[in-house]
Design a protein around this nucleic acid. Structure first.
Lengths: 335, 335
DNA sequence: TGCTAAACTGAAAGTGCTTTCATAAATCGT
DNA sequence: ACGATTTATGAAAGCACTTTCAGTTTAGCA
């Protein structure tokens, strides 16, 4: 009869639609729990009255804001994306907003980390592949923001990690077992300075295991290229067209392994006969390319991260968790 | 005695300072109405407990940072990711929070669309590859939420689109010009029912152009497979191992083109000599695979969407824009 | 000293929404 | 057809604060 009141509340909507406030609340928050017919009536009432739920009241009743933040290096790397997918998947149906903060400098990271906790409108935070200083850790702790780190552990915060050194070793052992002696390493350099460099750890493990097999990794066989297809190709070409090229290459990321494969293809080098290539990550496209690789379950790492986060939001007295995800070699055909 | 509780409220402060919550509230809101001595005690308690009124924090945060929402189909498709990257890039340094909503059913889309404009505190919204009904459009308009649609235009809302039909034509013309007559189409079926299906449009254009070249696309040469590598392979195998296989295939997405290439490789079919493959999208990995493809600039679509959105947020009287992004063929080596 | 106005303060009633719990209705197996 | 579930709904108890209102001090002033 008389729509457009000043500021309709759920009480008004309830009256108008002939239901109760609980029902209104339900159609707003979990529509599937409301009979479709009732839902329709309520929606109509909401529209008719121009009802707008007040975020403040909601946050108060819920004792949380329903927002979880994810900070990630500006996602150029496919692996970040797959992790993000895991996070989004684990969060769907959970009634939390997913707020993405892309970081592209150490300054920005710092400033996010110093202001975000204070604004008090995040219920939890996930840091992907970002290093965090003690000061920032303490700030998060002090403000009781549940936090999960992916790929960059800190003893006081939850984390989901992998054993990069071990992964490097696995790659080395695999190639050695296949009989290779002339083995090269292809890594990237330009993960931005503020970001942890798991690639270096992979190199450490790789070198160790080779050492133990009596093989010395010479400088000539350790190549680093910025994380772009073009630069990777450049380095790959140098490596492969040397006078005495390697018979096997461990690329510290699948992305670079793919670059390597492309170069090999163009140079007419047969894979795996003349050149074995093993990658690291097991990106989606690794399967397409039949790339043998050290698999870390990227999606899973994201999924685990929110699981931990949500459980800590629900009960913030839970002890800190450090989860170590297993690695394994996926043997396809490039090595 | 025991400061640092989880989340101090005014009740805690009241107890700690031996006053009542009303007094705390007054100290916060109108200090001059509180006896200076009491005020001092309360302030001390506030400091000791590290009390931050939640509502205030929220309000401040909401003023300081704007929020842009992006709704996307649950991003399994690489193309969504690349668009998202464009969006994030265009938004960095802009002092807006990026809130991601992943949609995986038509119900969820509806419910987001009916509640987000109201409850979401969003300054603007981008819908990626999602169809939107008139009702929802009107709701957005009514609540003055600037919106940009990507890949699914609506006359009343801003949009960034491409000419899918034209793209299909380009592919056909390209293949015909190369002398092919036996040409097949590989599309996907399982873009979830709620999502627009640009692939069908590509097929329409493709068929048209073939027709004009005097070639009829038979049903046998139109194959649809769900959007997974496995299913795509299955269909590709059927197609290629038929008694009279096609000499060229247009895959409606690069992802499927890659699946096709993989199958061809496994069957020992030479590309492009025995089989030409052309894709659509120009994903990152298309370059790696040397895939000839119809390029749409995915990153750019996201960036443009954000630009339009921000300009409309700044001045909501601007007229609706419909931007049409150009397509072009990137000739690499698979076709 | 007695009486009133001014200055404080706390109890309690909102505020708009969520959620638990109990009840009522509908669906099902047999 | 009948108890057993399952599903849908409403009543009512929070949630973290603000504000009103009445009560208690205190101060002011004959």
């Amino acid at each position: 009869m008389c729509p457009l009141k000043k500021n309709p509340t759920i009480y008004d909507v309830a009256k108008y639609s002939g239901t109760s406030i609980s029902t209104i609340s339900r159609v707003l928050n979990s529509p599937d729990k409301v009979n479709v017919e009732t839902r329709r009536k309520v929606s109509a009432a909401i529209d008719a009255l121009g009802f707008v739920p007040k975020a403040e009241a909601r946050a108060r009743a819920l004792r949380l804001n329903g927002r979880i933040g994810v900070m990630t290096p500006f996602f150029t790397a496919p692996s970040f994306v797959q992790r993000l997918r895991g996070i989004a998947g684990g969060l769907s149906k959970k009634n939390y907003d997913l707020v993405i903060y892309t970081v592209d400098s150490v300054d920005q990271l710092q400033s996010y980390l110093s202001s975000l906790p204070l604004t008090g409108n995040l219920d939890g935070l996930i840091l992907m592949s970002l290093p965090i200083e003690d000061v920032a850790v303490n700030r998060l702790l002090k403000h009781h923001i549940p936090t999960v780190l992916i790929e960059f552990p800190h003893k006081k915060l939850n984390s989901v990690e992998i054993d990069d050194i071990g992964g490097g070793r696995m790659a080395a052992e695999y190639l050695v077992a296949k009989g290779h002696r002339r083995i090269a390493f292809l890594g990237d350099t330009d993960l931005p300075e503020y970001s942890i460099h798991p690639v270096s750890l992979r190199l450490v493990g790789f070198r160790q295991a080779l050492q133990e097999a009596g093989i010395t990794l010479t400088d000539e066989f350790v190549r680093l290229a910025p994380y772009t297809m073009e630069q990777t190709r450049q380095v790959a070409i140098e490596l492969l067209s040397a006078s005495n090229p390697p018979t096997a290459v461990f690329a510290a990321t699948d992305f670079q392994a793919l670059g390597m494969l492309k170069v090999a293809r163009h140079l007419g080098i047969k894979v795996p006969e003349q050149l074995a290539v093993i990658g690291f990550d097991d990106l989606d496209m690794a399967e397409y390319a039949d790339l043998t690789t050290v698999r870390q379950h990227l999606d899973e790492s994201g999924r685990l991260a929110i699981e931990i986060l949500l459980s800590h939001i629900a009960d913030n007295s839970r002890p800190v968790q450090h989860i170590n995800l297993p690695l394994n070699i996926v043997e396809r055909i490039t090595a």
